[in-house]
Nucleic acid binder design. Structure first.
Lengths: 197, 197
DNA sequence: AATTGACAATATGGCGCTATATTGTCTAGT
DNA sequence: ACTAGACAATATAGCGCCATATTGTCAATT
């Protein structure tokens, strides 16, 4: 199936995939039952098997749908003109990493394990895409000039910012806390833009 | 036992505690046997019980010794004059978070669980001390002026930098990669210092 | 297209049991 | 002050077994 077909198919199953994502996020892969997902999605359990071959397939699709949604939102945030780079970076990191902050249960390790084992390549591919988009946004901004002067490339900045988002995701208890931390990092990263003005 | 007595006692048992730390880091708390620790430390298994009441006590002491050592090294790096704030921040984060990057085995979750369960208070106390020290170093530097102008306080910067170190610790495969990432973050955080000159 | 009820195949968790490994504590020795 | 050897108490890993839960598939139905 082509990527476009997959996107159309995802659009059809969007509601189910989003419901599945929250159930998987809360219970992990193993402890989340198809019955739970079906109830959360408002369909019958057999309805799931009409749309997805099996549980692993459903998980893969739900994960990819969520990643796609997060990446799309991050891209939109980055291409927003008028708010400035700093605000865009904060919004992008929030869209990418902040969605499930605080909602992860005790089975977070099971989730990570299942994700890397069932869709590890997809996961790293989306992460690369996110960092590349952030790098492109930085390269398109006046900050690019400072990068070169400091002996860095936009990709380095994107990687560091992504690491900050990762760290905050693990240490923050709430999404507000996460955004607050990202704001500090983004503001410092964008500091060179405000000093010459 | 007073804190000074504890430090003197730690100095006496330093070799054993350091050996224990690497064994625990590699095998986790449960899978690391007293026999393994004894062999690594070059003492008999019974020698351990002469110095420490039980396995939990040994683990707590090894953890606290490691934390104390990392914090001490970080403080030394921060108070180093002549290299500049940026280099000091990198060295401090490396001393604090970088020591065990790449050496963690598959039982890292067991380690974290045991650490928080057996010495959670100590752990967070040392983390707070690290962030406070970083914040103090920033407050003592010209960067403090920019903080105020940007509506931030040094503690915010320290927290964000710590988050970056956390994230890099999890995503970096080697210590070099970790230091490289920290270098980018520290350079951007210290950018305001270099623009006005 | 989706739901329902039913179904076999399979996965999972609990329980008792055994074998082994490890802990924690002796005593004796250097 | 530490080691060596031995020891009971305890923890852990494995196994088979059973009860249960869940998966994946079916025919019948709306």
């Amino acid at each position: 199936m082509s990527e476009q077909e997959a996107e159309r198919s995802d659009a059809r199953h969007a509601g189910v995939l989003e419901a599945a994502a929250v159930v998987f996020a809360r219970y992990g892969f193993r402890k989340a039952s198809m019955d739970e997902v079906a109830r959360a999605a408002g369909v019958s359990r057999q309805g799931l098997y009409l749309q997805f071959a099996n549980k692993q397939e459903l998980f893969r699709r739900a994960l990819e749908h969520s990643l796609n949604s997060q990446l799309t939102a991050a891209l939109a945030a980055l291409s927003r003109s008028g708010d400035g780079l700093e605000a865009n970076l904060i919004a992008a990191c929030d869209a990418w990493s902040g969605r499930f902050v605080g909602t992860l249960g005790a089975d977070a390790t099971d989730l990570m394990c299942a994700s890397t084992s069932l869709a590890g390549a997809t996961l790293t591919r989306y992460e690369s895409r996110f960092e590349a988009a952030v790098a492109a946004a930085i390269a398109d901004s006046p900050l690019d000039g400072y990068c070169a002067k400091a002996g860095l490339c936009p990709k380095d900045l994107a990687h560091a910012l992504h690491a900050t988002a990762r760290g905050l995701k693990h240490s923050s208890a709430s999404r507000e806390e996460f955004v607050k931390g990202m704001t500090v990092a983004a503001r410092m990263f964008c500091a060179p833009l405000k000093q010459r003005g």
